[in-house]
Amino acid sequence: MINIENLTFGYHKKQMVLENLNLHIKPGHIYGLLGRNGAGKSSLLHNICGLLFPNTGTCQVAGKIPARRSPEFLQNVFLLPEEIYLPNVSIKSYLDIYAPFYPEFSRDMFFKFLKEFEVPKENKLQNMSYGQKKKVMISFALATQAKVLLMDEPTNGLDIPSKKQFRKIIAGVIKEDQLIIISTHQVKDLDSLIDFVLILEDNKIILHEPVDRITDKLAFKQVMSLDEIAAVIYSEGALKGYAVVAINHKQEPSRMDMEIFFNAVLTEKQQILSQFN
């Protein structure tokens, strides 16, 4: 669904944000795009949806070239940006003016999501809080039924019950021919939803693995002392002992802690990545 080859992108000629990046993604999954601040997560998402054009290399999304921004492409690739713009109209007229641009738009879905988020549908958009606006935009994005949904920090600004609602909605909405990429810092909110992990570092995707394969190769454990476990790659001191990432020699199933995994990849890059070759 997304085929990126040797993509290089930079705002200035001398300073590249993405360099020789390759990425091939298939539908039916929820991808978590992780990376440090300024690693280029948003730049990558913007290249995928046609807001930015690659300097060199090719990018193909849903069979089309994003930079051409054809209406059919834009109907099928929806970006939910981190900061959103909403005009000063009611939810109803927002729907009236924007929904017809998306042929697959489902009003029923939209109002169902709004209800689940507990957003009153009579409101004017400008009078809403940031979190409320975000919920309207999330509901709209999902109701377009776009094949590729790119979400930049979707849970920013959502309170705890809303994050729960968000997880429920996403879990119920993803279809087999659909693809969701969520770029996030708040891994804890979403780690039960994500089934593929992408890590953007050093201007390229250094890791692209299903969660299953990560837990096949690595064991995530909590131990009182580091002696209890062999082949430790990375550990973090916690209140009750250590959170540990180790080589999974015994083929034990464990639960991946995405935050610790991300930290482990950044600090012990070579060791972790060599497990997946």
């Binding site: 807001l51 109907q75 940006p81 641009f101």
Partner: peptide, 17 residues
């Protein structure tokens, strides 16, 4: 504009339209 522009540019209509 950065924020408005994202929405204006990704709205499904061609540049000509």
């Amino acid at each position: 504009e950065k924020i408005k522009g994202i929405q204006a540019l990704t709205l499904p209509a061609s540049a000509l339209e």
